[in-house]
Amino acid sequence: MSKIEEKQEEIVDEFSMFEDWMQRYEYMIELGKTLPQIDEQHKTDENIIKGCQSRVWLHADLEGDKIKFSADSDAIITKGIIAILIRVFSEQTPKDILEADLKFIDEIGLKDHLSPTRANGLVSMIKQLKNYALAYQAKLN
């Protein structure tokens, strides 16, 4: 089992303890508060993910053969969502990131955030994470 899959299972387990939407959102808000802040110098317009109603900055560094992500947002629930994504994807190889199946999003009740409405940022965030992986994979090869 790849590390990405293990992390997804961990998150699914955590979310399975919640009985209602409030607990789920309260947890995401908590996660948002713990999100490792992006270095101020990376909060540039270039690093803003387009297609989110809130502003989301995502930065990626290659450390060895793994990618380290950092991010921030001005909306707290969005921060929680990115915190979850970073937990799954950060410090993984580009190859694993590109091949990752994201079924956990459905399982933790975040699927609503995947609908292709304009307000939604999750689709754009995942796309951007994978874009970084693609770019770094090309660089590694």
């Binding site: 939407w21 959102y25 109603q53 809130s54 001005d74 707290i76 629930i77 969005t78 307000a119």
Partner: peptide, 13 residues
């Protein structure tokens, strides 16, 4: 201090 998106998301719930 709050983002409108967060308010809208919680109200939708």
């Amino acid at each position: 201090g709050l983002h409108a998106y967060d308010i809208g998301t919680i109200l939708d719930q």
